[in-house]
Amino acid sequence: MSSIAIIDYGMGNLHSIAKAFEHVAGRERVVVSSEHDVIRAADRVVFPGVGAIRDCIAELRRTGLDDLIRELVASRPLLGVCLGLQALFDVSEENDGTDCLGILPGSVVRFPRGMQDSDSGEHLKIPHMGWNRVVQTREHAMWADIPSGTRFYFVHSYHAVPSRESDVAGTTGYGRDFASVVARDNLFAVQFHPEKSQHAGLQLLANFVAWNGES
């Protein structure tokens, strides 16, 4: 029986994402854990996260989960969600500059204050909160049965700026087009919350359960 481990490092509640995976998992076991052995034994790993990036990285380092994530990403499918996407990059502007995991080259920046919509002139609020479109910039097994332009639920004030164009798998427009999905080898990471994105989100999670790590 295969299993999915959701990494628990004390950043935010994992109830929703665990429930959503249980909803789409067939015979796969879903575990929420901070134990290295338990996570290492899983076939697929989910790296979630909400809150502040400095606390996130500090907890990962304290628990040694940062090295474990670097190790696992070479050998099995890994899904990053929200802060779990941002933490993959080299550095974030948040908390006066925070060094991150450096698994993907690039940085994380804040949406500037006072952004306006280019069409309507409307004042764009921060956080970017609500249902926005994700335009698929390349084919990927994780996009199965999800049309390009589908809406997902976002809530964030910072976004990734990948150095390599080839790492981008989806973009979203909010004052600017930003990389809302990144992918490389076994890694697929999303800025939105699939566990809160109704049918489309559950489909993405189901795709992850079926994905063998080849794009």
């Binding site: 919509d117 280019s118 069409d119 309507s120 409307e122 764009l124 970017h128 609500g130 249902w131 926005n132 479109r133 809406r151 979203t172 427009g173 909010y174």
Partner: peptide
């Protein structure tokens, strides 16, 4: 503009 207005 892409972000949808929400109904709650």
């Amino acid at each position: 503009m892409g972000l949808a207005k929400r109904i709650i």
